[in-house]
């Protein structure tokens, strides 16, 4: 158990190259990326995004994570305090490892997307035994 206090992170708004046609906010989701011998794992924080709103794409070495929110802002309420604004999420990564596209797994739970990108067989580290004479 950690005794660390959580710090607040301001959501970073996405700077898009083109001008969006829809008046919609997009944020850059915070991610954890780590690698094991078998796979690359990606955890992305996307509060407000349901399971159906997630799109994951791997194309020519670019991994695109996109989350759209389904919840509409409630009507007829007076705002007393506003510290966050709901919006979609979009982030792209270039993936260097050769990923087995067929076996990519994605899971969404409590607003956190968990992606497992298994590496294709040859990329696994192989220990080479050095034989004595």
């Amino acid at each position: 158990m950690t005794e660390k206090e959580m710090q607040i992170q301001q959501k970073k708004e996405l700077q898009q190259a083109g001008e969006p046609t829809k008046q919609e906010k997009f944020y850059v989701p915070a991610v954890d990326i780590f690698e094991t011998a078998e796979a690359v794992h990606v955890l992305a924080e996307m509060p407000g995004v349901a399971k159906d709103g997630v799109q994951v794409q791997l194309e020519e070495g670019t991994l695109t994570i996109r989350g759209d929110i389904a919840q509409r802002p409630p009507e007829g309420e007076t705002v007393l305090l506003r510290e966050f604004e709901p919006g979609g999420y979009l982030r792209k990564f270039s993936v260097a490892e050769t990923i087995d596209q067929e076996r990519i797994e994605a899971k969404m739970a409590d607003g956190v997307l968990t992606l497992v990108l298994p590496k294709v067989e040859p990329a696994k580290p192989r220990r080479i035994e050095v034989k004595g004479l």
């Binding site: 509060p47 305090l81 966050f84």
Partner: peptide, 27 residues
């Protein structure tokens, strides 16, 4: 938007009958 200082960031609103507190707590 007010800058939040402590996690989690909150949105608070009200209507005639209720007060609504919303927080982003992913994970």
């Amino acid at each position: 938007r007010m800058a939040p200082t402590v996690f989690p960031a909150l949105n608070i609103s009200e209507d005639a009958a209720n007060i609504y507190v919303r927080a982003e707590i992913p994970g």
